[in-house]
Design a protein around this nucleic acid. Sequence first.
DNA 1: GAGGAAAAATGACTGTGGTCAACTTTTATT
DNA 2: AATAAAAGTTGACCACAGTCATTTTTCCTC
Lengths: 215, 215
Amino acid sequence: MAGLREQKKKATRAAILNAAINLFGERGYERTSVSALAKAAGIGKGTIYSYFSSKNEILLAFCEEELAFINSEIKSKLDPDAPLAEKMLLVFMSEFRFVTKNKEFGRTLLREMTFPKEITIDKSLKIEERFLNLFVSLLQEAQEKGVLRTDIELIIAGGHFYSLYLMTLSAWYSGRLLSEEDVQETLKLLIDQALTGLLPRKIPASSTTDQRNNS
Amino acid sequence: MAGLREQKKKATRAAILNAAINLFGERGYERTSVSALAKAAGIGKGTIYSYFSSKNEILLAFCEEELAFINSEIKSKLDPDAPLAEKMLLVFMSEFRFVTKNKEFGRTLLREMTFPKEITIDKSLKIEERFLNLFVSLLQEAQEKGVLRTDIELIIAGGHFYSLYLMTLSAWYSGRLLSEEDVQETLKLLIDQALTGLLPRKIPASSTTDQRNNS
DNA sequence: GAGGAAAAATGACTGTGGTCAACTTTTATT
DNA sequence: AATAAAAGTTGACCACAGTCATTTTTCCTC
């Protein structure tokens, strides 16, 4: 059979990821050592590092699979006729729940995703891409429906929403937002702000202050 | 003299911070070990941990001092008559330059600030507070000038801008934005978006699609 | 200033992530 | 099937962050 080597590699990789799912779930990410992971996978410690460049990358690989599943699930839940803000909120909250299911786990993931080290940048980008695409496709639909400006790049608008999501997560991690309800409420406000803008709603008929705006 | 103990503690703390400034600057954060820090400060390694709860907290303490300085400098540079967007951009870019002067250093700081561990949450909040206040005071002025909606909470609006800043930093760290010019350009777009909103500029006179908006 | 209690400093020690030279297995070649 | 080259595996080893029982210094009381 051609490719015994390839076969074994696949199996080993799967074994590592499987051990990761079990041990990370049982004892958490930090309290699981790479040696323990190796032992659970039935291989030597050094071998792990010919499959993953660091312990954090194992986490990313694990999350990539999970997120692929979660994302498709979210997509199927979305009511295509709901308002954009509502859809966004649903996406945000689903991802929030996933990523904060285990606090420490989520923190490591977010740290690595948001401010990646060179060593994990590829994986990190891949996952983020998948995530951003979710927004971008929502925004594209919105544009087609005429409920979103068409004079802006989708990726920038997507980034805008993504930033609100990150911010809210950060606020949760630093204890500014305590409950899921807080998070949801804040996200709602932020999404609304992003949609309607921060400029005053009506231009005052007469103004005493110098009022400069860029283009 | 009353308080020899206090005096010594202050001196030791200063010595550690001083060693940190030198060694972090010379060899970078990660390549500087706590033992080396202790040796440079002329104290034992264990002592460090009765002044700081972790290596990361030393970084935060160091940055707190630096940022206090940077922030006041930024404030003095701000032309009070410039448009809000311009002021925001100046603040963002100044902070961006500071935090990315040393890439790895900035990454550790941002990770700890954005997704802090319980052990460093206090310091992290303190620094973030200082940072947010900068925005909030800008926004307050803007409200008084009538160039910013008054029906929103300042802290939420401040968070909104802060989120754009974080996002852009993240994009830089993951290699999406490569140069300072890219960063500035993107920030400009995002700030403009935030101000003007993502909804279509003019409500179409006649529409064929269902167009629901929340409140 | 002697004695003892409280506070602070210490460095040997622990468990960790990651490395690497030596070793084993697979593949290609004859 | 023998052999050599290439690919893959390994665990002893390293440097590190953080801990803690022990020692040293400061303070308070008489």
